[in-house]
Write a protein that binds this DNA or RNA. Structure first.
Lengths: 265, 265
DNA sequence: GGGGAATATTGACTTGGATCAAACCCTGGA
DNA sequence: TCCAGGGTTTGATCCAAGTCAATATTCCCC
């Protein structure tokens, strides 16, 4: 399978990184009035009062990136908010085994608001320009300070949406670049970790009970109940027992490895 | 294909609807202190000051729903926010041809914060309890009033996240219950509508230029470049011409129908 | 405890889409 | 003009997962 983005040719990649490095340092520039007007229309900032907007806008700086330039990579600390003024940026996820897929493509006025950044976690995804783009940048520290000063419902809504965002991201990646057995494996690992109670002795299997019936679980994991049955059979050889809703996992590490769930979200 | 949730047996469904109707009307009740404590921990409300929380909490009411009860259905106006106090609720999406899949399952303290509700759109998805559940409910009107009074960055972040949420939702549905040709078709329809300029005469084809190269588009749509090529060939018989990045669509309605994109988001 | 319905498993078959490989463009440089 | 090298298309083949159909199981209600 794997409709992967195959490796970017070395020359392009070098160009790109050089382009990026140059941008961040040398091309950093204050925003023109035209750019400011575009920025004002970004959904992220459009609710702000003129005063608050001006205060925040002063902290933005500008970078231009060439085609194929990486904006950030999976695993990087998320220190900067980017809002696209022109061009287009693709967000992609990848599994530890180097296969990647594009999750979404964003255009002007959309923010690469990686929600994980709002809670201080590293980027769970990568972003790269798919055409020459101009980005307005803001250190997340500035943004977070503003956010933490707010105590309304919206802040809660953001927290909630960030959680959902990460879940959906995860499911989309699962669906696009993992096989059915891998999806089941990583789901079981997820459940086991959510339970949080390690077995009494290290050698004893982890046991818990599924919240969902078979049909629901199958649909949740994006497969038919028939196929789920077969997949359960396959995982038995990895030390997973699944009878009814009762689960027993004898080697969690092996299962995690099998599900390629190591990418950190 | 279609790892669909097959039709719920009639008896169960009746039970369920009766249960629901009964809940909303008769079982509506103020929250106990235990329920209030749970509610307080919901991410959506945890940032609120004690005062603001109390004000909002007073508007919440309680419903208990049995297993399999629908909470809301795709297309319903979104008038009520639900926060799960106990139990579990599955969110599912469906295409017009009645096939459905579960997108995510949520548990206690998580809000069924359908982001579309925040902007007043009808539910793009359905929710049903997969085990007996207790929900705290709040009319969205109350919530929206509070939100509109806030003018900070968080409100913008919510707006932004809602957009992303809907995109991801859409992609996940695409991936789970549409075929490759359908995904391409509905993507093209999406592009055509985003352009917004109808052709001069009704009979003339709609023309535009793709933003992405073939490889990027293929990954975005969750298929290999090879398969994308073949799929483009298939769509030619639906009146779609695609040369390089140039697109010409002669029958948008037919294409939309083919892509099953009619579900309203 | 004994039907009976719903659910879960198993098996045979089909198919969508991935993979591998070859042929066919384009586009840019000598 | 020709050639080289990337990207796109086409073809042949394979495999994961869906479909259909037949059992086996579980669970529930009488």
């Amino acid at each position: 399978m794997s409709f992967a983005i195959s490796a970017i040719p070395a020359r392009t990649r070098n160009q790109a990184s050089r382009g990026r490095a140059a941008s961040a340092r040398d091309q950093a520039a204050p925003l023109s009035s035209h750019d400011l007007a575009t920025l004002r229309q970004a959904p992220l900032l459009s609710a702000l009062s003129p005063d608050a907007f001006d205060r925040l806008a002063a902290s933005f700086y500008l970078i231009d990136v060439p085609r194929e330039a990486p904006i950030f990579n999976q695993g990087d600390p998320s220190d900067t908010l980017h809002i696209i003024l022109s061009g287009r940026v693709a967000l992609s996820g990848s599994t530890p085994d180097r296969r990647a897929c594009i999750l979404e493509v964003f255009g002007p006025r959309e923010g690469l608001l990686d929600p994980s950044a709002l809670v201080g976690a590293p980027h769970p995804i990568s972003a790269r320009a798919i055409e020459p783009s101009r980005l307005a940048c803001l250190p997340y520290a500035d943004l977070r300070a503003v956010i933490e000063a707010e105590n309304g419902v919206c802040r809660g809504a953001v927290a909630q949406l960030v959680q959902h965002w990460r879940l959906f991201l995860r499911r989309l990646e699962d669906q696009k670049l993992r096989s059915a057995p891998q999806r089941l494996a990583s789901y079981l690992v997820e459940c086991a970790e959510a339970i949080g109670t390690p077995p009494r002795s290290p050698a004893a299997p982890i046991r818990f009970v599924l919240a969902e019936d078979r049909r629901t679980l199958a649909s949740h994991l994006g497969m038919t109940p028939e196929n789920l049955s077969r997949v359960i059979g396959q995982l038995r050889s990895c030390g997973v027992q699944l009878n009814g809703r009762a689960v027993a996992i004898s080697d969690l590490a092996a299962l995690r490895q099998f599900g390629c769930a190591a990418s950190g979200h």
